[in-house]
Design a binder for these strands. Structure first.
Length: 118
DNA sequence: TAAATGACTAACA
DNA sequence: GTGTTAGCCATTT
């Protein structure tokens, strides 16, 4: 259970909730937005509740990250159900389905620096 | 308290 | 294209 860093996870989870169906984001992308490292983004997914579309978060290669349990297939299935296509290698076309990120308005409304760099 | 772990990434060979 | 190295930092042991 998260301790003091629960707010950090909450922030990541909120970002993930903004990802529309049919789009995907990378761990590093979320990490940049929440101001933490990519590993923490992965940890946040492991701890993500069911109301978070964690299946829309993949690694920078556009593949499903291998984890302990074999939940990869479930994640792939959810994405396919949302219209995300995988190529023969099991990778998605990030150039096509990658989530551009939250709107500037959202960022500003949530205390993020719109300048990109605080 | 210290060391190991991990749903990562970028850079380099 | 693949393999290795280093950096990352909360969580777990």
């Amino acid at each position: 259970m998260a301790t003091d860093s629960a707010s950090l996870y909450a922030r990541i989870h909120e970002l993930v909730r903004l990802i529309p169906a049919g789009s995907v984001a990378t761990y590093g992308q979320l990490a940049r937005l929440c101001g933490c490292s990519a590993r923490q983004a992965g940890y946040a997914m492991a701890a993500a509740p069911d109301d978070v579309p964690w299946h829309r978060v993949i690694n920078s290669r556009g593949e499903i990250s291998p984890r302990k349990e074999g939940g990869e297939s479930a994640q792939r299935g959810r994405l396919l159900d949302e219209g995300v296509t995988f190529d023969r290698r099991g990778r998605v076309d990030l150039g096509q389905v990658r989530w551009p990120g939250p709107s500037w308005a959202w960022l500003a409304a949530n205390g993020y620096s719109v300048d990109g760099i605080e």
